[in-house]
Amino acid sequence: MARTRLARAPLLALALTSALVAAPARAGGDEDDGPPITSLEGRVGYGLAFGGGSGASSQRASGVTMTALVDQAVIEAPWTSIFGGIVAEGYGHGAAGVLVGARVRPSRGRLRIAGGAVGLLVPRTLFGPLASVGGCLPIDGAFGICLDLEAQLFVTGTDLPDERVAGQAQAVLGIAFDAL
């Protein structure tokens, strides 16, 4: 029974993400507040880790990734923000590092597309790009719940086996606080 629930979890995450992303299209002109200028976000991600390159390719359940982000809008049209924060991994293995990037909200709505870079610094290093797509739904005042599908690719670092790359694809659930 527990296994069935676990197997259904990513499907549920997919459905929720689709609902969030579809929301701006349905809401249409009702969106007048627009995205926050400055927001803080705490996130938890879980999904699949993969490795490839020389030798055998591998896929396995990823660790749990926890992230704290600060997001600052910098361009109004299209609504673009830059973000930075700290990331920690647990459940299976521990690691900590930083990530930076930029997000675009094409219609000033809930859909957001991000690209950036992540660097895990301790206990071993990993560096590479990241990309995500998802959305946020206001839940109460300045707070919102966010769900993103995020992929990270680690191309260099001391945590990688020789001549291999690794990465992870995760569903990331977040709580955002609209600071400004």
Partner: peptide
């Protein structure tokens, strides 16, 4: 289903590692 990974990208096996920290 979400399009984040390709079909047949590799056998799913928790016994295999992707990074030394695992």
């Amino acid at each position: 289903l979400a399009g984040l990974i390709a079909p047949g990208a590799g056998a799913c096996n928790d016994a295999l590692c992707t990074r030394s920290s695992e």
